[in-house]
């Protein structure tokens, strides 16, 4: 059982997002691992623990700092880490998926996982694009994947707490919404140790092909409304809120 997890290094939305030339000013933002990739990595390791096999984590190194994320994945139980050294912070999902699909094809995976979405997936997510390029089916929004005898039982989430179960013949691509368990924690000491000893394989990117979106403008949303802001200390804010609730008959 070979599970490949395709991850994405993306601008952190926790910080300011300065814009330059109709796109993010990539030089002035931090890059982080897409939060759903933590779930896809966890899902992969859970399957490995259940049925054996190996987990390969692969991502496009868009700014040359992917090693941290790869080391973390290794510390959590992945066996092999691969980066595609593109150093193109603006590489879109199509471009990244093309590179990834090419590399993954040579790995003969039984199952490919990705995060269900990333906040910079303007041209779509990696998972379905990789599936399209490899001529495989794709299912996203998964919250549990179990593998037995060349098949997977997959639970996909729908709104309102509804789930649908599918039986899927391997190989296929899944976009993980959540692993059945919260992503495990890897102690810093272990990550440090791995950073010193682990080998991250490097692949040079082949031909990429962008998703064909021309960027005309990027800006914070034009706000039609904004909250009336309550100023002051926590006590003053609390007092004002209580007063507000009383005046509305909510208390």
């Amino acid at each position: 059982m070979h599970i490949v997890v395709a991850i994405k290094h993306i601008p952190s939305i926790a910080d300011e997002l300065p814009v330059r030339h109709n796109n993010i000013d990539f030089d002035s933002v931090d890059f982080v691992l897409n939060e759903w990739d933590e779930h896809s990595i966890e899902q992969a390791v859970l399957i490995k623990e259940a049925v054996g096999g190996t987990v390969t984590v692969i991502g496009v190194d868009v700014i040359g700092e992917l090693d941290n994320a790869l080391h973390l994945a290794l510390a959590k139980g992945a066996d092999r880490a691969v980066k595609i050294a593109a150093e193109e912070p603006g590489a879109d999902s199509h471009q990244q998926a093309k590179w990834l699909a090419e590399a993954i094809q040579n790995m003969s995976p039984d199952l490919i996982l990705s995060g269900v979405q990333a906040s910079n997936d303007l041209d779509g997510q990696l998972g379905p694009l990789i599936a399209a390029y490899l001529d495989l089916p794709y299912i996203g929004g998964t919250s549990a994947i179990e593998v037995t005898n060349g098949k997977a039982m997959v639970l996909k989430e729908f709104p309102g707490g509804i789930g649908m179960r599918y039986e899927i013949a391997l190989p296929f691509v899944a976009g993980v919404q959540a692993a059945p368990k919260p992503p495990r924690y890897a102690p810093v000491s272990k990550v440090r140790q791995i950073a010193q000893t682990a080998k991250v394989e490097t692949i040079e990117p082949g031909e990429g092909e962008s998703g064909g979106l021309r960027f005309l403008k990027m800006a914070p949303p034009v706000v039609t409304g904004h909250a009336e802001m309550i100023q002051g200390t926590a006590k003053e804010i609390a007092a004002r809120i209580v007063e507000l609730l009383k005046s509305r008959g909510l208390l």
Binding site: H94, L122, P128, L129, I139, G140, G141, G211, G212, L213
Partner: peptide, 19 residues
């Protein structure tokens, strides 16, 4: 739609805009 749009884009080689 999240399962279909980008997959179709990759298959057809036509642009896709999400969100």
């Amino acid at each position: 739609g999240m399962d279909l749009a980008a997959w179709l884009s990759g298959r057809m080689g036509v642009p896709c805009v999400a969100y």
